[in-house]
Measured scan of single mutants.
Amino acid sequence: ATNIVGKVKWYNSTKNFGFIEQDNGGKDVFVHKSAVDAAGLHSLEEGQDVIFDLEEKQGKAYAVNLRIK
């Protein structure tokens, strides 16, 4: 899925991951530091509006192509 809109539920910059809540009511999506770095960001803030693509690997969904809304 592409261009999914959501809000950062939480992001832990020490542990380098967090979760994004989808605006469409879907399951929360894992986001890793690598996606944050690829977006040219240092971190994510709770409540921040983002747009992302959804990829699945080994049955787990995660956010890629992250951008600030």
Score class of each variant (00 low, 15 high):
57 K>L: 08
62 Y>S: 11
45 E>R: 08
47 G>A: 15
67 R>A: 06
4 I>G: 05
49 D>W: 11
25 G>F: 13
34 S>A: 09
34 S>P: 03
31 V>S: 01
35 A>H: 08
61 A>S: 07
21 E>C: 05
32 H>M: 05
25 G>V: 11
2 T>Y: 12
69 K>V: 04
42 H>V: 15
45 E>Y: 11
31 V>G: 00
28 D>I: 05
20 I>W: 00
39 A>L: 11
13 S>T: 07
23 D>I: 13
2 T>R: 06
69 K>E: 13
60 K>F: 10
21 E>Q: 11
9 K>S: 05
33 K>G: 08
32 H>N: 06
16 N>E: 10
31 V>E: 00
41 L>W: 14
41 L>I: 15
61 A>K: 09
66 L>G: 00
11 Y>N: 01
66 L>K: 00
29 V>M: 04
63 A>K: 00
60 K>T: 09
57 K>A: 13
24 N>I: 13
39 A>T: 08
36 V>Y: 03
40 G>F: 07
43 S>D: 15
6 G>I: 01
18 G>M: 02
65 N>H: 12
43 S>T: 12
8 V>N: 01
14 T>G: 08
55 E>M: 13
55 E>K: 09
19 F>Q: 02
41 L>S: 09
18 G>E: 00
8 V>T: 03
43 S>M: 14
8 V>I: 14
14 T>I: 14
60 K>L: 10
3 N>G: 15
59 G>L: 08
6 G>F: 01
55 E>I: 14
11 Y>F: 11
54 L>W: 06
67 R>S: 11
52 F>R: 00
58 Q>H: 07
31 V>A: 03
26 G>T: 14
47 G>W: 05
39 A>H: 03
28 D>K: 04
4 I>D: 02
46 E>W: 15
27 K>E: 07
15 K>D: 05
26 G>Q: 07
53 D>R: 03
43 S>I: 12
18 G>F: 03
38 A>Y: 08
3 N>C: 05
59 G>H: 11
63 A>G: 08
58 Q>D: 11
17 F>W: 07
67 R>C: 04
58 Q>L: 09
56 E>F: 12
29 V>K: 02
52 F>G: 01
65 N>W: 03
12 N>E: 09
9 K>T: 03
24 N>C: 05
28 D>Y: 06
60 K>V: 11
57 K>I: 15
41 L>P: 03
24 N>Q: 11
33 K>Q: 13
52 F>E: 00
44 L>P: 03
28 D>R: 04
29 V>A: 07
22 Q>S: 07
3 N>E: 10
59 G>F: 08
9 K>Q: 03
1 A>W: 07
37 D>T: 12
60 K>Y: 15
37 D>G: 13
41 L>K: 10
54 L>N: 06
7 K>S: 06
13 S>Q: 10
39 A>Q: 05
43 S>C: 05
3 N>P: 04
62 Y>T: 08
64 V>R: 09
46 E>F: 15
42 H>D: 14
52 F>L: 03
46 E>Y: 13
64 V>W: 07
38 A>C: 04
57 K>F: 11
39 A>R: 03
48 Q>H: 06
45 E>A: 15
18 G>H: 01
30 F>V: 03
